[in-house]
Simulated assay, not measured.
Amino acid sequence: MPSLYEWYRNDEVVSDESTHFIENVNRLDSGEYNCTATNEFYDNTNSSGHDVAYLDVQYPPSVKDGQIVCKEGDAITLTCEVDANPAPSSYTWTKDERELSSESSYNIPAVDRSDSGDYICTATNVYMTAQKRVIVVRLKLTSSVSMILYLVMIWTGSNT
């Protein structure tokens, strides 16, 4: 009887070869790997003492741009959500090239007109620096402001 092999990643069979080869390793290949072998003299498939190898695939930060719509007076939190391994060692929030925070999130307790604009979150790990752009847009207006804008538009339109 020839030897039979099974390679597992996170308790799921990934190969039945004596050697498991991963071509073009990516972040989804991370996990615990172990192999079982069976032949006519030995069967270790039911053994609990398997040697386990852990594959830790590392990669630079990747971030997504975002947009927040709010109204004046709202409290908002800008969060820099980063996919990276290892995790970022530093964060920097900036607006108009001015540094605001070195945390992964930035709070604005009460939004006002001066808070509109582009906020940049920079996340850095040992491999690379990546940036996320969050645009804070104030579109929701109170009813009195909406009415004033509406009247101004009618008045301007009637003079043309």
Score class of each variant (00 low, 15 high):
Asp29Ile: 08
Ser30Pro: 02
Ser30Trp: 05
Gly31Trp: 10
Glu32Tyr: 10
Tyr33Pro: 02
Ala37Ile: 12
Thr38Ser: 05
Thr38Met: 05
Phe41Trp: 11
Tyr42Val: 00
Tyr42Lys: 12
Asp43Pro: 00
Asn44Asp: 03
Thr45Lys: 04
Thr45Met: 01
Asn46Asp: 02
Ser47Tyr: 00
Ser47Arg: 00
Ser47His: 01
Ser47Glu: 00
Ser48Thr: 13
Ser48Pro: 08
Ser48Phe: 07
Ser48Gln: 11
His50Glu: 00
His50Lys: 06
His50Leu: 01
Val52Arg: 10
Ala53Gln: 13
Tyr54Thr: 12
Tyr54Asp: 10
Tyr54Trp: 12
Tyr54Cys: 05
Leu55Ile: 08
Tyr59Met: 04
Tyr59His: 08
Tyr59Cys: 03
Pro61Trp: 13
Val63Lys: 14
Asp65Leu: 01
Gln67Ser: 10
Gln67Ala: 11
Gln67Asp: 03
Ile68Ser: 01
Ile68Lys: 02
Val69Tyr: 11
Val69Met: 10
Cys70Val: 11
Cys70Gly: 06
Lys71Pro: 02
Glu72Ala: 06
Gly73Pro: 02
Asp74Ser: 09
Asp74Arg: 10
Ala75Val: 09
Ile76Ser: 03
Ile76Val: 12
Ile76Glu: 01
Thr77Lys: 13
Leu78Cys: 02
Leu78Thr: 04
Leu78Pro: 01
Thr79Met: 09
Thr79Ile: 15
Cys80Thr: 07
Cys80Gln: 03
Cys80Asn: 02
Glu81Asp: 08
Glu81Phe: 14
Glu81Cys: 10
Val82Glu: 05
Asp83Pro: 04
Asp83Ile: 15
Asp83Ala: 11
Ala84Val: 09
Ala84Leu: 04
Ala84Trp: 03
Pro86Trp: 10
Pro86Tyr: 09
Pro86Met: 07
Ala87Trp: 10
Ala87Glu: 12
Ala87Thr: 12
Ala87Leu: 13
Ala87Tyr: 12
Ser90Gln: 06
Ser90Asp: 06
Ser90Trp: 07
Thr92His: 03
Thr92Trp: 04
Thr92Lys: 11
Thr92Pro: 00
Trp93Pro: 02
Lys95Ala: 09
Lys95Cys: 06
Asp96Cys: 04
Glu97Phe: 09
Arg98Glu: 14
Glu99Ala: 11
Glu99Asn: 08
Glu99Asp: 10
Ser101Pro: 00
Ser101Lys: 06
Ser101Ile: 05
Ser101Trp: 06
Ser102Cys: 07
Glu103Lys: 15
Glu103Asp: 13
Ser104Asp: 08
Ser105Leu: 10
Ser105Pro: 04
Tyr106Arg: 15
Ile108Thr: 04
Ile108Asn: 01
Ile108Tyr: 03
Pro109Ser: 12
Pro109Ala: 12
Pro109Met: 09
Pro109Trp: 09
Ala110Ile: 11
Ala110Tyr: 13
Val111Ser: 07
Asp112Ala: 06
Ser114Met: 08
Asp115Phe: 15
Asp115Glu: 11
Asp115Gly: 13
Asp115Gln: 15
Asp115Asn: 15
Gly117Tyr: 11
Tyr119Lys: 09
Ile120Asn: 05
Cys121Ile: 11
Thr122Arg: 09
Thr122Asn: 02
Ala123Tyr: 03
Thr124Gly: 05
Val126Gly: 09
Tyr127Ile: 00
Met128Arg: 15
Thr129Gln: 07
Ala130Asn: 14
Ala130Asp: 14
Ala130Gln: 13
Ala130Val: 07
Ala130Ser: 14
Gln131Cys: 02
Gln131Thr: 08
Lys132Phe: 03
Arg133Gly: 01
Arg133Tyr: 06
Ile135His: 07
Val136Cys: 03
Val137His: 13
Val137Lys: 15
Arg138Phe: 09
Arg138Trp: 09
Arg138Thr: 15
